[in-house]
Design a binder for these strands. Structure first.
Length: 297
DNA sequence: AATCCAGACTGTGTTACTTCA
DNA sequence: CGTGAAGTAACACAGTCTGGA
């Protein structure tokens, strides 16, 4: 029973890969979820699936059988046991894989499998013994392999099963290695982007802090002005105007009296900046305070 | 010896699909 | 026959471990 179900699992994988190969859209499209199990998969995907002589075809619900017709008409033997590659792929992708960890026997074997060399390292594909978890060893990918993976990553950030298999074959790697490489690559890309974003936000924060400091100073200056020149603030023709460069709204007397104010605030708009390209109203755009054309020091 | 990078793994959440009541 | 719940596989991602440079 279990064997049959386990086989069903492998069976599914085999069919799935064939289907992928046959139907994967060329322009990377989202192939994910495009596969469906062919057989009721009652059993844990615990692998490695033992190689057994093919038993008679398991029961097929009619609907499934119909679906499998497609595979069989393409010459796919749905009854065959999964190949080791398929089993590997099946086990590798499953989060529940039982042979996921190398650690048992991995550390113990450390050193014996060590003496590789560069040439040996270039090929990370493992022998059968290694596949069984006896002598698996973390291997550095060769430069060529890394470069090729990088190129692929530039084209698409995720791989469909077909691409993964093709890459693995091409690079003499296990599909799981390709998969892991892409996962790590995505993670590191994201991490880098996060760092960049963080730096950007820090700059924004500094800019806003500085701007806030300027505004506080202006407020203080205006208060002082109000107390020393009580009538000054009651000038009738006061209008709102906007600093052309930083778009800051300021209360500016339309008369020339404003120019007589002894504060740095008066100097703010006294010398209109030459038609500088207007920034989009993005308050978070980090700009050095001096870039606004006025100083509040 | 300490540090960093990258390969590999585990755990979790999501989605699509099948089966069954 | 249609439908919703349960089960499963595949996948991506975050977090972590660890070997190697």
């Amino acid at each position: 029973m279990e064997q049959g179900l386990a086989l069903g699992m492998g069976l599914d994988v085999g069919r799935r890969e064939e289907e992928e190969a046959a139907s994967a859209d060329e322009e990377d499209g989202e192939v994910r979820r495009s596969v469906e199990p062919a057989v009721p998969l009652k059993l844990l995907p615990l692998l490695p699936v033992p190689r057994q002589p093919s038993p008679p075809l398991l029961r097929f619900p009619s609907s499934t059988a119909t679906r499998n017709l497609d595979a069989s008409t393409r010459g796919i033997d749905t009854n065959r046991a999964p190949s080791t590659e398929e089993a590997e792929e099946a086990s590798s992708s499953s989060p529940n894989r039982a042979v996921s960890s190398f650690r048992t026997g991995f550390s113990a074997q450390r050193g014996s499998a060590e003496r590789g060399g560069v040439a040996e390292r270039a090929s990370s594909i493992l022998s059968d013994e290694e596949e069984n978890g006896l002598a698996k060893k973390k291997l550095r990918l060769s430069k060529e392999q890394s470069a090729f993976l990088e190129e692929s990553f530039k084209e698409h950030k995720t791989l469909n099963p077909r691409q993964k298999l093709a890459l693995a074959k091409q690079l003499n790697l296990r599909p799981r290695q390709v998969e892991v490489w892409f996962q790590n690559r995505r993670a590191r890309t994201k991490l880098k982007q996060t760092e960049v974003d963080c730096e950007y936000l820090k700059r924004c924060c500094r800019t806003l802090t500085e701007e806030n400091r300027c505004l506080q100073k202006e407020v203080a200056e205006l208060r002082a002005l109000k107390s020393t020149h009580p009538f000054y603030m009651h000038l009738p023709a006061t209008t709102l105007s906007m600093c052309p460069s930083c778009e800051r709204v300021a209360s500016t007397p339309a008369t020339a009296a404003a120019d007589h104010r002894p504060s740095s605030f008066a100097a703010l708009f006294s010398k209109p900046t030459p038609a500088a390209p207007r920034q989009p109203p993005d308050n978070f755009r980090p700009q050095p305070p001096a870039a606004t054309g006025h100083s509040c020091t």
